[in-house]
Design a protein around this nucleic acid. Sequence first.
DNA 1: CAGGATCCTGCAAGATACTG
DNA 2: CAGTATCTTGCAGGATCCTG
Lengths: 123, 123
Amino acid sequence: MIIKDKEYVFKLHEKTFHCALDITMNFIGGKWKTVVLWYLRNQTLRFGELKKQIPDITEKMLSIQLKALEEDGLIKREVFPEIPLRVEYSLTDFGKTLIPVIESIAKWGRSLGETDGEMLEVI
Amino acid sequence: MIIKDKEYVFKLHEKTFHCALDITMNFIGGKWKTVVLWYLRNQTLRFGELKKQIPDITEKMLSIQLKALEEDGLIKREVFPEIPLRVEYSLTDFGKTLIPVIESIAKWGRSLGETDGEMLEVI
DNA sequence: CAGGATCCTGCAAGATACTG
DNA sequence: CAGTATCTTGCAGGATCCTG
C-alpha cells in the first residue's frame, strides 16, 4: 500500500477512491444491494423467492443487482439443471464479512422506529 | 407501531419504507453524506475546512448535503456574525448515534485495503 | 468566506413486454 | 422459472458563474 500525500488512495474497478467509506459504498451502495444481502444473510434463496421477499423490486433490477453482487464476489450463483430451472443465491464467505455492516445499518434504522415518535410516523 | 401483514411499515418524509435498511439509507445514502459525517465525527468544521478535507466535492454538493443533514437533525449549523462570516458544523447528539454505523462501514472498506491484494489495486 | 443560481448530463431505476 | 430487451424517466451529481 502506498501513501500519497499522507492519504490512502485505492483503485478498484477502474475507479479511484480516496477514503474507505467510498470503497464500502461501492459494494453496498444504491437502493437495493443492502436489501438483497439482508435477505440472503442467513439463507439460500431462489430468484423468485427473493422477488417475493422484496415486492417493490422489479425483475430487471433484481437481476442487475444479483449480477453485480456476484461480480463483486459477495454472492454465489448456483444453477441446478432441472426442469423447471432452479437457481439459488447465497452469500460467499467474502459476502458474509459484510453481515456486521448490514446489521449495523439495519439496527440503527430499527432503533429509530422504536424510540422516536415524532420524526417517524408509523403506519 | 402497527404491524401490517406481518411486516413493519414506516413512513418518513412522505416516503414509505418496508425495511429498516431503507430508513438508514435515507439518512446516509448517496455519494457524500457518509463522508461528511465522517469528517465531523470528532470535530467541528467550517464550510471551507470541510471542502478542504473532501477535495472532490463541489461547493454546491457540499452545501446541499449539509442542508439535508441539518434538516434530518444529524448536524448542527452555527453562525458567528463575524467579518468574514464564520459558520461551523458539528454533529448533534442524534447524529452521534450514527458514528458506530459509519465506523462499521469505514472499517470494512479499510480491511479490504489491508488484506486483499487482488481485488484491490492500491496506487 | 460561505454559499446561491442556472444549466446540464449521465446513470440509476422504473414500466412493460417478451423468452429459453 | 428465471430471467432479457427496450424504452423511458427522474434525479443525483457536475460545471460554471455569481453574491451578501
